[in-house]
């Protein structure tokens, strides 16, 4: 026993150093895994509070681009509405059958108060949390396309695992077809992501649009992701396709969080199948 105490006395500096390093390394690992609860992140009230104060100031510098984005989205949505009106007029009557009607998704608007895009594992912080009904594994999009998935929430703030995160895997498909693959990021350029495992017979061309596939319970189908910018015609196993994002991930303001009302039912069904 005395020997042990002597040992600790003698090497306490080194032992303290090892302790701190193990602690830091442990925190690094838990931060990277999606399903563990996190201690070190930017959603705690002190850090996120400071960030939201900062974003109150910096938001003014981005108002112009924010307005342009919103106007572009309004134009797109108005055009969609006009198309619908035409369909209704042709039928000559509007039938709203409340029995047939059901809502699958709901949207909540939030503001990005902290944005990372320069690292290998990037996260965003939003100023909405559990009080606004935000929960883990909800989709985050903006008017240009997908942004990420909620990975941690507390009462007032939420952390988003950006698509620019090497752990992020999102189901994506070629627009207007059912050829799908999974979206991945290699960690190099924040303007491009990679689409893996898309079948070779898929009629891919440079400039084709890639959208979310709706094969997961998180993202609704048909949300834009980006354009095909490089196709690998070699014999690699994963058939890697480079995609240029529609979204400028370095300039994010207002985002929408999508809640899927049927998520739990889908999950339950999928788990039954596995057993």
């Amino acid at each position: 026993m005395q020997q042990l105490i002597f040992f600790i006395q003698r090497f306490k500096y080194f032992l303290f150093f090892i302790l701190l390093e193990c602690l830091a390394f442990g925190l690094t690992i838990t931060n990277l895994s999606f399903h563990k609860s996190k201690f070190v992140n930017s959603t705690n009230s002190l850090v996120a509070g400071l960030y939201s104060q900062k974003s109150k100031i910096t938001a003014y510098f981005r108002l112009k681009s924010e307005i342009e984005i919103l106007v572009a989205e309004n134009v797109r949505l108005k055009n969609l509405l006009e198309k619908r009106n035409l369909a209704v007029i042709i039928k000559d009557s509007t039938v709203v059958d409340t029995v047939k009607y059901f809502q699958k998704y709901t949207f909540t608007a939030g503001k990005v108060i902290n944005n990372n895009f320069d690292k290998e594992f990037n996260f965003l912080t939003l100023d909405i949390g559990k009080n606004q009904g935000i929960d883990k594994e909800m989709a985050v999009v903006n008017s240009n396309g997908i942004v990420g998935i909620i990975d941690y929430t507390n009462n007032k703030y939420a952390r988003v695992q950006s698509i620019l995160n090497r752990n992020s895997r999102i189901n994506a498909r070629l627009r207007n077809t059912n050829y799908f693959g999974s979206l991945d990021w290699d960690g190099s350029d924040y303007k491009t992501v990679q689409l893996l495992d898309i079948p070779r017979q898929a009629p891919l061309r440079i400039g084709d649009t890639i959208e979310t596939g709706g094969k997961s319970a998180i993202f609704p189908e048909g949300i834009f992701i980006g354009r095909v910018s490089k196709i690998n015609r070699g014999n690699s196993a994963d058939n890697r396709v480079t995609i240029t994002l529609f979204n400028d991930m370095s300039n994010l303001g207002v985002v929408y969080v999508i809640k899927n009302f049927e998520r739990d039912e889908i999950r339950k069904l999928e788990n039954l199948e596995n057993e």
Binding site: L23, L32, K119
Partner: peptide, 17 residues
């Protein structure tokens, strides 16, 4: 700094070293 930049414990590890 890790708290602010969502990096887990990377800054802490490097600066302690």
């Amino acid at each position: 700094i890790d708290f602010f930049s969502d990096t887990g414990g990377v800054h802490a590890f490097a600066i302690t070293f």
